[in-house]
Design a protein around this nucleic acid. Structure first.
Lengths: 220, 220
DNA sequence: AGTTTTTATTTTGCATACAAAATACGATAT
DNA sequence: ATATCGTATTTTGTATGCAAAATAAAAACT
């Protein structure tokens, strides 16, 4: 008996993953029309699994179906972002509250470690590395909630905001503010203070919202 | 030129809707295996659109794919419900907060009207009608937030909890408590007090959580 | 009899083929 | 030259066919 059977994922799942990656990386920009035959050729699969993958990503919201006219990479509007961020604030706040209650010392220490890395990236002005460690910290805290549905829900919303790519527009001031909020986050987490961590995370997303909307104003 | 073109929905969308209905109504019970050929016959379509629909519902979480072995109606576990309800509490709270800020008097009056209907259903012990009006009130408040993404997110989570069908297990006490919380909700809404409405809604979902978990205890 | 092995049947996964709609193109008319 | 109509081509939507995997059934063996 073998309980760890290796089952290679179905084609439509693999295709969905590849498409998600292409969309997330911006290689398939928002608004791009998805030509089935072209994609089939580049991916080396037939139309059936490709179409199944497209349907999946459509229900995920990454792709928009246009009946009889195929599908396009969905466009994340300013309104979408404005709608999503308050939801993210609530959910990240909840995640932080639960994480402060449930995370053990070793995991908290791990977050602290990455936080320190992030700070040094900030000081060295290493933007890409900063964003990556930043993302990782939020991910670890959310996962620390122990609520997988919460993690999934946040990820799905977060993916859309990320795709809008306003992050690069961060000013010196907003960056400094974000970093100082992160200091407070870690302190609240180490103190295992749910109320405080929740409040800081809600505030943190609010800062993010202000940053993003500020950036949008300048690029109309 | 005609801007209101009638485009009949693609088959896979129609099929997905019918499947969703069958699952939601319990006609397709959790755990039921979905035989493609059988479903094709009953629905009068070929396997291609059916499979596309199944993939969609799978990413929605209503269906679980089992590679090389088809799909089953996904089973909502007690853990799932335990995870979902705190999220619903946060989101409904946010919805209420926004609704208290944005809803106009006529819409608030509409909620009051349905609330009064709900109360009379409660007094007459009309359970089904009570639940329907109850659901409608929550829907109206959430929609009153003006945040469509929030509405969608809540609906998606709510659908899973509803499918678990623990609602029938409500005791006299928990029912009374829910009703009194609803009185407070309406008062807060009419006073257009965001903080209060948010707090009540969070509390309300907490009551629901206690009711459901109490019911689960008795039916192991 | 019970268990394993082999064979047959069903069911899913993927590819292809055909039909319908949409788009692109060109000819004709004004 | 532009606009409109009609035809050709492309692209999507749906159905079907074939291969592989899984399940069920039958046979062989202990």
């Amino acid at each position: 008996m073998n309980s760890s059977v290796i089952v290679r994922a179905p084609l439509h799942v693999q295709v969905a993953e590849r498409l998600r990656l292409l969309i997330d990386s911006g290689e398939l920009a928002p608004g791009t029309r998805l030509n089935e035959i072209d994609l089939c050729n580049t991916m080396g699969v037939s139309r059936t699994p490709l179409r199944e993958a497209i349907r999946s990503l459509a229900t995920e919201g990454l792709i928009e179906l246009q009946p009889n006219r195929g599908a396009i990479v969905s466009i994340v509007s300013q309104e979408d972002v404005t709608e999503i961020l308050p939801i993210m604030a609530s959910l990240e706040g909840l995640g932080g509250r639960l994480a402060a209650m449930h995370m053990d010392q070793s995991k908290i220490a791990q977050v602290r470690k990455i936080h320190n890395q992030m700070i040094s990236h900030y000081k060295n002005n290493e933007v890409a590395e900063y964003f990556e460690t930043n993302r990782l910290i939020h991910e670890l805290i959310t996962e620390g909630s122990g609520n997988q549905t919460l993690v999934d829900t946040i990820n799905s919303l977060s993916a859309k905001v990320r795709r809008a790519r306003f992050t690069a527009q961060m000013t010196k001031e907003s960056w400094a503010k974000a970093v100082s909020e992160h200091e407070e986050m870690i302190a609240a987490l180490e103190a295992q203070d749910p109320d405080r961590l929740e409040a800081i995370l809600v505030q943190h997303v609010e800062t993010k919202r202000a940053t993003i909307l500020g950036a949008i104003e300048q690029n109309p």
